[in-house]
């Protein structure tokens, strides 16, 4: 039994890098800023070329995934001369801690920057305690 468990773990480890590599080739992690304040977490992600209808934000369990396809209208028959960016698809996942309120995630997209606001559950927000002077 213990042997079997060991084998399963090893297999999983071996399989992962290959799968990871394949994913990275097709989908690129967007650059992000993430910060936390008293009321929640804010994520800013650079996703140039992604329009609102090609952007997907979803929460599954404790994982928040952002996914966007790049689509820029280009003239027909255009030939590449020089390319620094060949990104066609952005994707990045984040693990959320249980104190985050996944039902109240707000997302907005402006000029290719995705902003996510993930509030903390009410009971986890810091409360100010007044000190009474006797």
């Amino acid at each position: 039994m213990s042997d079997k468990t060991e084998l399963t773990t090893t297999q999983a480890r071996e399989v992962q890098p290959a799968a990871e590599q394949k994913r990275v080739e097709q989908k690129v992690r967007p650059l992000v800023d993430i910060f936390e304040d008293d009321s929640g977490i804010t994520v800013h992600a650079d996703m140039p070329g992604v329009s609102r209808d090609r952007l997907n934000v979803k929460v599954e369990g404790d994982t928040l995934t952002i996914d966007g396809e790049v689509d820029i209208p280009m003239p027909e028959g255009m030939e590449p001369l020089y390319a620094e960016s060949r990104i066609t698809h952005y994707q990045r996942g984040f693990t959320l801690s249980p104190e985050m309120d996944v039902d109240k995630v707000e997302a907005s997209l402006k000029n290719g920057v995705l902003t996510l606001r993930i509030p903390k559950r009410e009971e986890h927000k810091p409360k100010k305690i007044e000190v009474k002077v006797a």
Partner: peptide, 24 residues
């Protein structure tokens, strides 16, 4: 920043700069 791509056609040259979050 920003990353640049350049493409050409017989009529024109098209330059694309990936510059998100910039006040145009």
């Amino acid at each position: 920043f920003p990353a640049v791509n350049v493409g050409t056609t017989a009529e024109a040259v098209d330059v694309y700069l990936f510059a998100p979050g910039v006040d145009p």
